[in-house]
Amino acid sequence: MSATLLILADEAENKAIFMENNLNQNQANQSETNNNPGQEQEYRAAASKFINETSLDKMHEIAEAARIKKMMEPPKWVMPEDL
């Protein structure tokens, strides 16, 4: 696998983690502040900025790189605790 593809996969994973953390933080903040409209607007602005600045082809590349990286990971086994 090329180094560029690995870099794109890392970049996609970092963006996904960042966006998930922002979403979780916004949901927590909304429950604490009873739907503060300022925070929702900030999230919408950040999402709009990403969508407007990132081409659809680039989004496809990021998604494909993340998918390939995920497929290359070894399976994660969940073992039940001893009964």
Rank of each mutant, 00 (worst) to 15 (best):
M1G: 08
S2A: 07
A3R: 15
L5H: 08
L5G: 06
L5Y: 03
I7C: 06
A9Q: 00
A9C: 00
E13V: 13
I17A: 12
I17E: 10
F18Q: 13
M19E: 08
E20I: 06
N21S: 06
N22K: 02
L23P: 02
N24K: 09
N24H: 09
Q27V: 09
A28Y: 02
N29G: 06
N29K: 02
Q30W: 03
Q30C: 06
Q30H: 07
S31P: 02
S31Q: 15
S31D: 15
E32R: 09
E32A: 10
N34H: 08
N34F: 05
N36D: 05
G38R: 12
G38V: 14
Q39E: 12
Q39W: 01
Q39N: 15
Q39P: 02
Q39G: 05
Q41R: 09
E42W: 01
E42I: 09
A45D: 10
A46L: 08
A47L: 08
K49W: 11
I51E: 13
I51C: 08
T54N: 01
L56Q: 10
L56Y: 10
K58I: 02
K58Q: 12
M59G: 11
M59P: 14
M59W: 14
H60S: 13
E61M: 05
I62S: 10
I62F: 09
A63I: 11
A63E: 13
A65N: 01
A65S: 01
A66H: 09
I68G: 05
M71K: 12
M71C: 08
M71E: 15
M72C: 06
M72F: 07
E73A: 08
E73L: 09
E73G: 04
P74K: 11
K76A: 03
W77M: 11
V78K: 07
P80N: 02
P80W: 00
E81K: 04
L83F: 15
